[in-house]
Design a protein around this nucleic acid. Sequence first.
DNA 1: ATTCCCATGTAAGCTGTTACATGATTTA
DNA 2: TAAATCATGTAACAGCTTACATGGGAAT
Lengths: 181, 181
Amino acid sequence: MNALSYALLSMLMRKSCSGYELMKLLQAFWQAKHSQIYPLLAKLEKEQLVTFEHIGQTGKPDKKIYSITEAGTAALREWIDNQPASLQLERDEFLIKLYAIGITEPQSAIKLFEERREFMLARLQRLETEMQLMESEEVPVTSYASKQFGRYLLYQRRVRLLREEMAWIEWVLPLLAHDPS
Amino acid sequence: MNALSYALLSMLMRKSCSGYELMKLLQAFWQAKHSQIYPLLAKLEKEQLVTFEHIGQTGKPDKKIYSITEAGTAALREWIDNQPASLQLERDEFLIKLYAIGITEPQSAIKLFEERREFMLARLQRLETEMQLMESEEVPVTSYASKQFGRYLLYQRRVRLLREEMAWIEWVLPLLAHDPS
DNA sequence: ATTCCCATGTAAGCTGTTACATGATTTA
DNA sequence: TAAATCATGTAACAGCTTACATGGGAAT
């Protein structure tokens, strides 16, 4: 059982999903390609941590809707409660470029930051619409009782971090523009 | 040439380092184990993007000090200027647990967040001492002219994001504590 | 006494990406 | 007409982790 397995189980706690849907939703906090997800779901099904139901569709390919089982729920709870939260890694090519920013012309540096700002802004806007959707649902998501609570906290964190990165970019840009060289 | 190769070249632009030192410094923005770094350095040396000098030491193992070559510098600049900054991924097991936080007792949730806070606080303090060290150096790091400028911006970003995550944790904790259940 | 730091390297195995494969419907 | 979306799967390869290997000096 690797981290991605638990990420899938975690998603399925909120609602039953197809592999395709899981791939989309996972982008928010544990990016994975379909070629990794489909075989893993099959493995989890073999281990009876999830089950699936075949859904025939017209005009679209058929799909499998996966649900978490009681054994799956137990395995997930066990992991959350007892496994130390070890792993935490970041892979961001922008940061590599940033480190060696002095190697380029100031113009290139400014371009790099402006592209980053556009990218982050687009992300932030997508996130904010998703959050509004979440908050407009019947069941309030802002209390521990809600099944959406964890997701809500996760999105709050992402919005905060994105805004902070935007603020950092706005702080950096003048330092590049007013360069005397 | 993968991203890690450019990360190594990027580090070597600032100063020549041993593989061991590179591994330590890389933790700041592109975590990699020594078993990945040493063979890659050998490969970069074969391609003449870096050179090394053998340094004999007493009481400590000998080491190789790697330096970036002109070809290496050119390759790095080319990558920074012309390759679109695609990749950006996060792998944080805490976020998986967060998503399914409703599955655990509020006590477990609180424990999870408090551990996260301690971890982040320790990181923040380490970073802040490193930043003070950087700022106390003779050469000012806060302008484009400095070789440390990129590193300084990177650390500024990290401090900001860490502080924001701390603020988020402080915002979440009361929501968990004042839970009516 | 045990663990950590320095310092480099190899081998086995797991994780993750890219490419191959299929195919109707919708959007640009 | 080309590309994107939905939807699943396999195969080959690259990236990354864990374990094996060595060994003195310093700190706990």
